[in-house]
Amino acid sequence: MEGLIPWQVEVFTLSARVWRSTYNNNVPSKVGAEDGHDNLIVSFDLTSEEFGEVKLPDRLAYNKCRLCMFKPRESPVVIEGCVEDSKQVYHVWVMKDGVPKLFEKLFTISGHTPVGSLVSSVLGFRKTGESLVELQAHPCSIRTLVAYEPYSKTVITLGVSGRYIFVYSYTKTLLLL
């Protein structure tokens, strides 16, 4: 692993309006190469300024497919996007009971929806648990944002469309200043 640049983490302190290096530099030394894993999740606790690692099950850790992570509720969710039988599919995995390596597959979103559009990506989740999915009629067409309920396979158009669609989570907080 020669030539790797060591991680450097800085924290912005709002009250002082300055960036500073963390006190604890316990970054996992073999991030990206530990136990030969290709994928892993590294966390950082802003209070203790400590790093942690969430070990993925072998299917996800050694996977060459595209992985995305979300935290729609209290448990991390990993989306595994891959091609199976010449079709794009998205497997949705959730960590059970906060135990690393204990992920359960919730459902799979097929590359085609009941309305005949292609699922180009899974962008997130609603509070209700529905997947926020980007659909296209064909690869070069305008994209449409829909809520997809995987068990009933219901698609609800949300009125958002365009060439590029991005979805970010929003969290309200109350800060005492």
Rank of each mutant, 00 (worst) to 15 (best):
G52M: 08
Y62K: 10
A33I: 03
S29G: 05
R20T: 13
D85L: 03
L106C: 11
C140Q: 14
L175V: 10
H91Y: 06
V99K: 10
V78S: 04
V92H: 12
D38N: 00
G124E: 08
L67N: 00
C65N: 13
P139D: 15
R143A: 14
V94L: 03
R17T: 09
E130V: 01
S43E: 11
L123W: 09
F70W: 13
N39M: 10
L67V: 06
G36Q: 06
Y168C: 02
A16C: 11
E149P: 00
L174R: 03
S161V: 00
V77K: 12
F103W: 06
V18L: 10
W19I: 03
D35Y: 07
F103L: 04
E149D: 14
T47S: 11
I79Y: 12
P72C: 13
L176I: 03
E53A: 05
L123A: 14
T128A: 13
S15P: 03
I109K: 02
I79L: 13
S169W: 05
T157F: 12
N63Q: 05
A147T: 02
L14F: 12
S117W: 15
L175K: 10
Y23M: 10
T173G: 10
G36N: 09
G98K: 01
R163P: 00
V42D: 08
V54I: 15
I156G: 03
L158N: 08
S121E: 11
F103T: 01
V78C: 06
N25S: 01
V89P: 00
W19G: 03
E53T: 12
Y151N: 07
M95L: 03
G98N: 01
P6C: 07
T13F: 15
R126Y: 03
L14C: 05
F125S: 08
